[in-house]
Design a protein around this nucleic acid. Sequence first.
DNA 1: TGGTCGGCTGAAACCGGTTTCTGTTAACCG
DNA 2: CGGTTAACAGAAACCGGTTTCAGCCGACCA
Lengths: 343, 343
Amino acid sequence: MSNSRMTVREIAKLAGVSVATVSRVSNGTGQVSEEMRRRVLDAIEKHGYRPDHLGRALAAGRHGALGLVFPGLSGPYFTELIQGFESEAVPSRASVHILCTHLRSDSDDQVLEMGRRVDGVAVMGGTISDETLLRLAKTVPVVVVAGEGPGDIPSVRADNAGSMLALTRHLLADHDLRDLVFVGNPEGSPDVSERWAAFRQAHHDLGIRPPADPVAVSMQQADGVLAADQLLGGSTPRPAGVVCANDEIALGVLVGALGRGLRVPQDLIITGFDDMPAAALVTPALTTVRQPVRELTAEAARLILRAAGQPGDTPAGGLVLPTELVLRRSCGCPAPPTGGTGR
Amino acid sequence: MSNSRMTVREIAKLAGVSVATVSRVSNGTGQVSEEMRRRVLDAIEKHGYRPDHLGRALAAGRHGALGLVFPGLSGPYFTELIQGFESEAVPSRASVHILCTHLRSDSDDQVLEMGRRVDGVAVMGGTISDETLLRLAKTVPVVVVAGEGPGDIPSVRADNAGSMLALTRHLLADHDLRDLVFVGNPEGSPDVSERWAAFRQAHHDLGIRPPADPVAVSMQQADGVLAADQLLGGSTPRPAGVVCANDEIALGVLVGALGRGLRVPQDLIITGFDDMPAAALVTPALTTVRQPVRELTAEAARLILRAAGQPGDTPAGGLVLPTELVLRRSCGCPAPPTGGTGR
DNA sequence: TGGTCGGCTGAAACCGGTTTCTGTTAACCG
DNA sequence: CGGTTAACAGAAACCGGTTTCAGCCGACCA
């Protein structure tokens, strides 16, 4: 027993009350006598009524939904971002819309369209044009994640530079390594751009010549394997160390190196960025930078929800979350005494 | 120049026309004189008007949105699923809502709630109770992905059994291996359950005793590393081969094995499932089963969109997409002649 | 007994669009 | 010149909820 698609008015008729009373009961607002409440609840229960979200949202003037815009999805990093966002949105009874701009040409338009069906949007840095971002921000609260927005659009990002400086300095000074290469595409995202810049900066600070160019590949494990093929494959002299833009690449490089019979860290050191779960577990454990990935989007969701709650105030400013250098075996540091791996 | 949150009525007033005319112009429907059209377009352009999705959806009686329900997000597999779904939804001007039930206790309720804000829902097999699934299906079209639904709820899944039978038979018969272990948790998802069953079936078919229990771990790379620790760590005799429930686990086991100095496939063979990009690239290349992951959700989206278009007809039936055994080096097969890796 | 107040209910307006239906105007025809 | 028709514009209804506002009724008080 339960028809689908019931409306307030039908329930009202069935229960012999007004629509206002049905609404009051189903929301628990206002004063309703016990007798009425029972009649309404009976009808709701009997017919399996659930209020339609559209009508409700229209009346409330809010969509009860949050948007999340990506350049494209790949690997564990993005699932972490989604989970962080979702974990904040759902308790606030907001649903999460996602949009991967990927290779689509009309993505700017689609982002604006999304702005009309949600209460706020988090956009990954470098995904859409500044102009579109500003237009969007006129309609709904916008937060840029892992990047900086134009104008006074608020942003949440991790401290890429600080830890990458420390990491590179550690390799150059403490381990006395030269001939480091950087694997990752600075054009691909603001994050990688900052990391590449810090990598070079650390060299300059110590008076060492950094490599002129990065090995520009994408951010997945397969790309790391390809980079390993290129770097360790043959003709060119082998570098002393490979500094990767993220852990996925680093694991790819690691597999490539081990598969070639190289020993890490004796023959080659490898570092990552993100501290994803596998980083601590592989042998050798991966030296990396811990970054609060979920927290990035969780914080963005909080900012958006707050801004959507009190329209008019701009949260403004950029939030920079701290990162932490995690030294493990893959950079040549000694393994921790008791089987632990730095987690 | 451009206020936010304009409405049809405001634009109508500014352009000196009726709301009906504005609607007609902004949708390109009906007959409108050039003069009127120009006036309306000017006003729309000048004030940056975009119709609100709620009003539009309410009037149209459809949400223009699709839901996608997950047990939780992790790794590349789920991003593939999302991308497949999105790739079908967006061209149909439907937005994509996601919901990770994860560890939340009220997930069944949230799925029903989602049913009120979208035109149809794809649910990963094993995510929510059959009862909730049936209730949901009374409201909107539902498709189960990678699993089977109760009643006549349509489903889209891959042929797990066929390829896993062939793979296991290949290992047992062609490579004459014994002492295989299966890594993956059959309780975790219908997919793994089918693979584990086929793994055992192949043993029985050849009169070989399969292992009594799988090594029950989750589906991420880190879990594979943990499984490697357990299997290769010490006391117990080393198995001859490790059949993994997916490629991520397999790559984890591979890293664990290589990190211990074992040679693959000489000392240990490893197989995966999914054929993710890295599988073909690692050394040794991974023997696995190619599965059309994106196509699973893309097909689900098509079914839903069709059903949402013509309400009343149930697509019914289960669609089983073919899979393909991909033999590479990691199972002991010879490397292909020309540097290729079976892709 | 009359007046006030508070609790409860329902009619109606409203949110922002789309669509039907009616009416006006001009063109075209016999 | 009267009549039919096509093209176009706008008023109003509608989608499914929420909320305001007015009104009814009983209790309480003077």
